[in-house]
Amino acid sequence: MTDHPNQVSAENVPPSVWRNPWHFLAFGFGSGTLPKAPGTWGSLVALPFVPLWQWLPDWGYWLALALTMLFGFWLCGKVAEDLGVHDHEGIVWDEMVGMWITLWLVPEGWGWLLVGFLVFRVMDILKPWPIHWIDRHVRGGVGIMLDDVLAGVFAWLAMQGLVWLKPLVLP
């Protein structure tokens, strides 16, 4: 048994994750069922999509972000309601979208993906203001998504700073 009712454990992984396509998506293709750090696993699952999305024009990647975010408001709210838990820790679609936001307009390459992953996880875990406030006070699908969307925006700003500084730091 876990100490927190929203934490993922073998006892509280809903079986619907494996039979309901909405639950499967919200649980990051099943990654949210892993017992330790489901948000980290969900963030990792998001990474293979980024090189594919980087083939799109910048506006195409932005459109994909907008669509996955809007879809996530509905998806996360629906699955949370289905499960009867406001923000089940296994719901990681929000982390996936946060990762995709973090890596928009970042150069291609696994090094950038790794740095973006680390920067996003730090923002998502530390939840600087106003992310922490939103996490505690905004409910429903919007509340589930919005803290990770903002963590993604903060991480994106940090990544853009790194992209801009790279020529000044590295030869």
Score class of each variant (00 low, 15 high):
residue 130 P to S: 12
residue 80 A to Y: 02
residue 69 M to P: 06
residue 128 P to W: 12
residue 44 L to R: 03
residue 29 F to W: 07
residue 125 I to M: 14
residue 99 M to G: 06
residue 159 M to Y: 02
residue 150 L to H: 09
residue 80 A to R: 06
residue 109 G to M: 00
residue 114 L to P: 06
residue 3 D to F: 11
residue 26 A to G: 02
residue 96 M to A: 08
residue 1 M to N: 10
residue 71 F to E: 10
residue 72 G to N: 07
residue 170 L to P: 04
residue 54 Q to W: 09
residue 75 L to I: 05
residue 117 F to W: 02
residue 125 I to L: 13
residue 110 W to T: 12
residue 129 W to F: 15
residue 67 L to K: 09
residue 156 W to L: 07
residue 33 T to V: 08
residue 65 L to A: 13
residue 165 L to Q: 09
residue 84 G to F: 01
residue 94 D to S: 02
residue 33 T to C: 15
residue 150 L to Y: 09
residue 24 F to W: 15
residue 132 H to D: 14
residue 31 S to P: 06
residue 76 C to L: 00
residue 128 P to M: 11
residue 100 W to Q: 14
residue 28 G to W: 01
residue 132 H to W: 13
residue 1 M to S: 14
residue 64 A to G: 14
residue 15 P to V: 12
residue 96 M to Q: 14
residue 61 Y to D: 12
residue 143 G to P: 01
residue 12 N to I: 11
residue 120 F to Q: 08
residue 2 T to L: 13
residue 44 L to V: 04
residue 149 V to C: 11
residue 152 G to Q: 05
residue 80 A to L: 00
residue 13 V to K: 13
residue 123 M to H: 09
residue 135 D to L: 04
residue 35 P to C: 11
residue 20 N to W: 13
residue 8 V to A: 02
residue 92 V to C: 04
residue 116 G to T: 09
residue 44 L to P: 02
residue 92 V to A: 02
residue 112 W to D: 10
residue 161 G to H: 07
residue 47 L to A: 04
residue 136 R to M: 13
residue 53 W to V: 12
residue 58 D to N: 11
residue 138 V to W: 11
residue 152 G to L: 08
residue 54 Q to R: 15
residue 147 D to P: 04
residue 30 G to R: 10
residue 69 M to E: 14
residue 79 V to S: 02
residue 89 E to N: 15
residue 128 P to F: 08
residue 27 F to Y: 15
residue 143 G to N: 04
residue 30 G to E: 13
residue 167 P to Y: 03
residue 21 P to T: 10
residue 130 P to Q: 14
residue 159 M to T: 00
residue 119 V to W: 01
residue 52 L to C: 11
residue 154 F to H: 07
residue 125 I to D: 13
residue 124 D to Q: 04
residue 122 V to R: 06
residue 98 G to I: 00
residue 8 V to Y: 00
residue 93 W to K: 08
residue 153 V to T: 09
residue 149 V to M: 02
residue 68 T to W: 13
residue 43 S to Q: 01
residue 18 W to K: 14
residue 37 A to T: 03
residue 21 P to Q: 12
residue 43 S to K: 00
residue 61 Y to I: 12
residue 101 I to M: 05
residue 127 K to S: 13
residue 164 W to R: 12
residue 28 G to S: 05
residue 12 N to C: 01
residue 157 L to K: 05
residue 128 P to N: 12
residue 79 V to K: 01
residue 8 V to C: 01
residue 30 G to I: 14
residue 68 T to K: 07
residue 153 V to E: 06
residue 16 S to W: 07
residue 35 P to Y: 06
residue 94 D to W: 00
residue 142 V to K: 08
residue 36 K to D: 07
